[in-house]
């Protein structure tokens, strides 16, 4: 299977009054064509920064690309000029943002916002664009699309707005769709509708999806591959089955243990991960998870673990996986 986008050793920093925050520190992963890949992690782990870097949406300054490359169909995104990016954004890559309440322009009708990209990238005239937009609205499940076309965002509910966002991002039939927490702001019954919709659209249009989320449930239900991020680095990656059934990194294991299972007894206490994530202003040279890890060893404090192969496409960045580590039972 060919890859649509490959991130290699990406590093991004932010310059703040307090100093340089190393938000992303050498992240590598790839998205196979036609598949759904999830980046999972807690707030501040760098998952959204990675996603935004993939479309060059970070404003520099305060952000600074410190290194690495992002190969989209073999070309490095980070070397593109702003003008070249404009042709790619919305056209070859679409993005769905987290908050449907604030990411639509309240002063423009949704019809205008959907057709904007089509008229720019696909040279549609007004009439063609309107017909296409109405079809898209129908596709994403908005009733009475002809009337809805001329309405403003405030006339839509949260779930409906997220559908409009999806329609906008699909307007130019992008090869890659980056969805940054697309359902976090929505209710569970609406979340189920949106996830089902994304899946259906992927089957129909063959779009590759990069899903950014913190919800492991959403990941298990929709994704083929999982990339787990912590404090700006990838700690584990593999197929969804592998990650959920055979997690190797103590952080991934901790995440899985801290959510209640449906069969869990109430008397059983949850097993949270103690402490909180490290300060990325001055990251330690060792494993970022060292301070919170139950299985931390001496080597973890000062030496960053190498990415070790587990099996198949499953990799874990942990000294416990090192061939010379003692077997832990």
């Amino acid at each position: 299977m060919s890859t649509i986008i490959e991130v290699k050793n990406l590093a991004v920093s932010f310059h703040t009054y307090g100093g340089e925050v190393q938000a992303v520190r050498g992240v590598s992963f790839s998205v196979p064509r036609g598949s759904t890949v999830a980046i999972v992690g807690e707030s501040g782990c760098g998952k959204s920064v990675t996603a935004k870097a993939m479309m060059q949406l970070l404003s520099c300054p305060p952000a600074e690309y410190k290194g690495g490359e992002i190969l989209f169909n073999g070309e490095d995104i980070l070397q593109k000029t702003e003008r070249q990016m404009e042709r790619i954004r919305g056209n070859e890559m679409g993005m769905i943002f987290q908050d449907p309440m604030t990411s639509l322009n309240p002063t423009l009708t949704i019809g205008r916002q959907i057709t904007e990209g089509m008229m720019k990238h696909r040279a549609f005239n007004g009439k063609e664009a309107k017909e296409e937009a109405i079809q898209l609205l129908h596709l994403v499940g908005i009733p009475q699309p002809e009337q809805r076309f001329d309405q403003y965002p405030h006339e839509f509910s949260g779930g409906m707005r997220q559908r409009v966002m999806i329609a906008i991002s699909l307007a130019c039939q992008p090869e890659l769709l980056i969805a940054d927490e697309p359902t976090t702001a929505l209710d569970v019954t609406i979340q189920a509708q949106i996830l089902q919709l994304l899946k259906k659209l992927q089957e129909e249009m063959g779009t590759s999806i990069l899903l950014i989320t913190h919800d492991l449930g959403v990941v298990a239900e929709t994704c083929d591959y999982v990339v787990v991020m912590y404090a700006g680095v990838v700690v584990e990656s593999g197929t969804a089955e592998e990650i959920f059934a055979n997690a190797q990194h103590p952080y991934t294991k901790g995440l899985l243990q801290s959510i209640p299972r449906l069969d869990q007894q109430r008397a059983q206490a949850l097993r949270p991960i103690i402490g909180s994530p490290p300060d990325l202003m001055d990251p330690s040279p060792g494993c970022p998870f060292y301070a919170r890890c139950e299985q931390a060893m001496r080597i973890c404090k000062n030496h960053h673990p190498t990415l070790e192969h587990v099996n198949g496409e499953h990799y874990s960045s942990c000294w416990l996986r090192h061939p010379m580590a003692q077997v832990v039972r």
Binding site: T189, Q191, A192, V219, A220, E241
Partner: peptide, 13 residues
Amino acid sequence: LLSSIPIPDPNFK
């Protein structure tokens, strides 16, 4: 409501 909760287990798909 209950069936909408995404379950963190791919075998539940």
